[in-house]
Design a binder for these strands. Structure first.
Length: 148
DNA sequence: GCCAACGTTGGC
DNA sequence: GCCAACGTTGGC
């Protein structure tokens, strides 16, 4: 079982949205490194939900990976902002996972707190300039976050 | 709004 | 394959 952290701008898709929908396909990732992490995810993995580009940014809750190796349907939708003309049905470029809501934390764990407690090695999201929207979280770090 | 830190594109 | 130009992310 592995732990991850996935980012979303709450004005685009928030943890409240996920709570309401219960499950969602995590579409729209168009970065190869992030996609490769999505490929590595396994059913039963847990991920922290991080709100980015908002005030204050931070971890707001937890979700579970419930289905893997899903072909991101938006890459084939010409009207979607995530449409990729260079992707083909036979060899889709973008794969993702289905996630399920687990919980909203009683208090947001803001980026400042995360920076104070963790080094960039322990938690990539505190690294300056990090823009990856999907990152792995080492087990020790994950357990510490869950105990905060 | 600014800008650092990327990733991508495309000419050569 | 190099690299300049450009676009995006996301904290501040």
């Amino acid at each position: 079982m592995n732990y991850w952290l996935i980012k979303s701008e709450p004005q685009v898709y928030s943890i409240e949205d996920l709570k309401r929908e219960n499950t969602t396909i995590w579409d729209g990732v168009r970065n190869y490194q992030a996609r490769n992490f999505l490929k590595q995810m396994q059913k039963g993995d847990l991920a922290f939900f991080y709100h980015s580009n908002c005030k204050p940014p931070g971890i707001v809750g937890l979700l579970e990976i419930v289905e893997t190796n899903i072909i991101d349907p938006t890459q084939f939708e010409p009207k979607s902002p995530y449409f990729d003309a260079k992707s083909s049905i036979n060899q889709p470029r973008w794969q993702t996972v289905k996630v399920q809501f687990k919980q909203i934390f009683p208090a947001l764990i803001c980026l400042n707190t995360l920076k104070n407690r963790f080094s960039p090695e322990e938690l990539l999201v505190v690294k300056k300039g990090n823009r990856l929207s999907v990152v792995p979280v080492p087990e020790n770090t994950a357990k510490m976050i869950l105990n905060l």
